[in-house]
Design a binder for these strands. Structure first.
Length: 196
DNA sequence: GCAATGATTTACT
DNA sequence: GTAAATCATTGCC
């Protein structure tokens, strides 16, 4: 079943990030469904420097983070990569979760076609910029409701066991100083599809 | 109006 | 291991 709106609108973004492991992320474009199991997430909150909405600084780009939970936040990084986030918490509280990697499950052929030449299949969805391309997500998907027919998160009812979840510091935000060390990155231990 | 830069990926030495 | 690709957003002039 699809995760309900209330799942995203709780206040503890770190807890939600951990619970998203093992859930399924799917998109449907032109009648073709693609997606996989979430195996790597990172939590971001307006309270820390790593977040685009640090200090509740609202801009045109991050405005959707200030809305209520259950919507997508997609933005362009390094001029060429679309990164996909799930907005959480209630209105005017800017928290979000970056999806960094999924394990391919459905529409693998279509995902490979979108990704083009791959030296190895392991690169299909093992990174935040890679999985958006595989699932057909780009900036136009910003602000979409996550309980719909275009994009949704599926709860398989099979949670990831506690001792299979690993917490570590987040990637690529060294500029955030002390906040870069927060253990807000969650991975499924030993999974093949984690980003590097 | 303009310059600096990043929640990355890929290919090449 | 290192570097290039490449542009929207941001903050300052």
């Amino acid at each position: 079943m699809k995760l309900p709106e209330t799942f995203y609108q709780r206040s503890n973004v770190v807890k939600i990030a951990r619970e998203l492991l093992g859930k399924g992320l799917f998109t449907k474009v032109d009648g073709i469904t693609t997606g996989g199991i979430i195996v790597e997430t990172e939590a971001y909150s307006w309270k820390e420097r790593g977040c685009h909405a640090y200090g509740s600084r609202k801009t045109q780009r991050n405005a959707v983070m200030f809305g209520k939970g259950g919507y997508s936040y997609v933005y362009l990084c390094y001029g060429m990569h679309n990164l996909f986030n799930i907005v959480t918490n209630s209105e005017n509280v800017a928290d979000a979760i970056l999806i960094r990697a999924v394990e391919p499950l459905e529409g693998i052929k279509e995902m490979k076609r979108r990704r083009g030449t791959l030296s190895n299949d392991i690169h299909l969805t093992s990174g935040p910029g890679k999985l958006t391309k595989a699932l057909g997500i780009d900036r136009k998907w910003n602000g979409k409701f996550l309980i719909g027919n275009e994009i949704w998160v599926e709860d398989f009812g099979t949670g990831v066991h506690k001792n299979k979840i690993e917490a570590s510091h987040r990637i690529g935000i060294d500029y955030a100083g002390e906040d870069a060390k927060l253990p807000w990155r969650f991975t499924v231990k030993g999974n093949l599809w984690l980003s590097k």
